[in-house]
Design a protein around this nucleic acid. Structure first.
Lengths: 261, 261
DNA sequence: ATAACAGGTTCATTATTTGAACCTTAAGTT
DNA sequence: AACTTAAGGTTCAAATAATGAACCTGTTAT
């Protein structure tokens, strides 16, 4: 891991629950030497990627990130477009809905909205990258994203998150094949115990998905008779999002959705 | 400049007009060796800060930036809060309004909205950092932000952007004193020829401003009798934004505003 | 066919990053 | 008031990672 990666990786320790971190937090979380971490933090701060609280000396994500994000969103307004439809979908299904983008061999959360009403709710963090092989999002990405994704997983270790996580590549391949066949993915507590989810891909340009939309539901609340309702709503949302992003649902997939609905 | 700074600096070449850049663009813009730039780009991409268009091989800002920005905004929703009031202010004054945050010795654009109707409009880029000594934003930051800002400028070269840019530190100090006295800043084409602007500080925590709000107007359209109207509207917006951010307008400043209005 | 150019790669050289140890400040304890 | 602890921050020789000239590859234009 090069210096740049080490420095950027420090930013990944922030989350909604940990919006401010001190030098020692970074040291412990990253396992790097204090001096190294300190220099990286200072350099990130000098470039506006971090800001330091003068009093507590803790660091928080900086203005440069908001500025760059804003530039990206003005040219590729993925998040704005996605968020509108996710909000609507969350309202309709009354459950947590999230959208994520394919980033290397993980899914990077882009937006989420939780309108669930039951006694329990799914814990979702925008800071946490999602694995491809263990989540409905990831499976939809593997089935409809660039084929190279699945290939690249073939020689990777598939981490076991729960009893139902597919850890064998051939099993995964079979599952992905089924997802491709059905036109949506389903995860039964394969990432987090007690959470089930449905996922569909969305498209920005070219024949392969750039991201996914998923509904996550506490397993105890899942009513399997509602599955067709969830998938139908996901398809509608994906079509809307893809259209607005200037993307096309591949013809074969769109036919599948039309027939099933 | 360390490796990290060199890599992060590459991200600053993006703008609304240049949302995608190729290897050679970065090489020319940064003046660095092609191999160096390439490795930096790859490392940024591996960490999600860039994405590469498979066909054109050009790079654009990546999903990680949007994700991190979203984490920051969920904990410190500066941009969301500011944007609401900027939109409203822009509607009221029918001119370009922007908010920027103090970042080191520059102002980092946070949000802007242009509702101007005249024949000309101010060209504003979210990608471009604003100098402290030559813009209304910067002067408001110098007058009401941390006093260390002005101190740090004392041994810096003050770049001359136009005939009316203050390039002498003592002149600048006098101007900043006047801004402090009046409770708002005014720039008469001191950054861009043909653009005048009014600026006020806003507050998040502590006694010093964290950012500024400014109205930018083509010089030819400026009606000086409207100055009291602009400053009054700016004060209202700053009070609203600061309140929502959990900040306080320092008592002396608030009194000044109350008397002038 | 060939030239021009952008993207991408290599490897010996060079310069930067690294980390153990040290310093400083603030808060809590005796 | 002296002591302890822990966090932030700094130093400098040693070690490692970054660098850039030259080279390769693929695409486009003539």
């Amino acid at each position: 891991m090069g210096t740049i990666a080490k420095a950027l990786n420090l930013l990944n320790f922030f989350s909604e629950n940990a919006p401010e971190l001190g030098l020692m937090d970074f040291k412990n979380l990253s396992g790097q030497d204090k001096a190294t971490v300190y220099r990286h933090l200072t350099e990130l701060e000098a470039n506006g990627f971090l800001e330091q609280n003068e009093k507590t000396r803790k660091y928080r994500l900086g203005a440069a990130i908001v500025r760059l994000s804003s530039i990206r969103e003005r040219s590729f307004p993925t998040r704005r477009i996605v968020s509108e439809w996710i909000d609507r979908l969350a309202e309709e299904v009354q459950e947590l809905v999230h959208a994520s983008l394919i980033q290397r061999l993980e899914m990077s959360p882009l937006y989420f909205c939780d309108k669930s009403r039951g006694a329990t709710r799914v814990n979702f963090s925008e800071a946490e990258m999602l694995p491809l092989h263990a989540t409905a999002s990831g499976l939809a990405a593997l089935a409809f994203g660039p084929p190279s994704l699945l290939e690249k997983l073939s020689n990777k270790h598939l981490a076991k998150y729960s009893n139902s996580t597919p850890t064998n590549f051939d099993t995964l391949k079979t599952i992905v094949g089924e997802v491709h066949e059905k036109g949506f993915s389903f995860s039964n507590q394969s990432y987090e115990e007690d959470v089930c989810s449905f996922g569909v891909p969305f498209f920005e340009a070219g024949p392969y998905a750039c991201g996914t939309i998923a509904i996550a539901i506490p397993a105890t609340r899942l009513d399997s008779s509602k599955a067709p309702f969830y998938t139908k709503k996901l398809w509608e949302a994906s079509k809307a999002v893809s259209r607005e992003l200037g993307g096309n649902i591949p013809e074969k997939l769109e036919n599948k959705w039309r027939q099933a609905a």
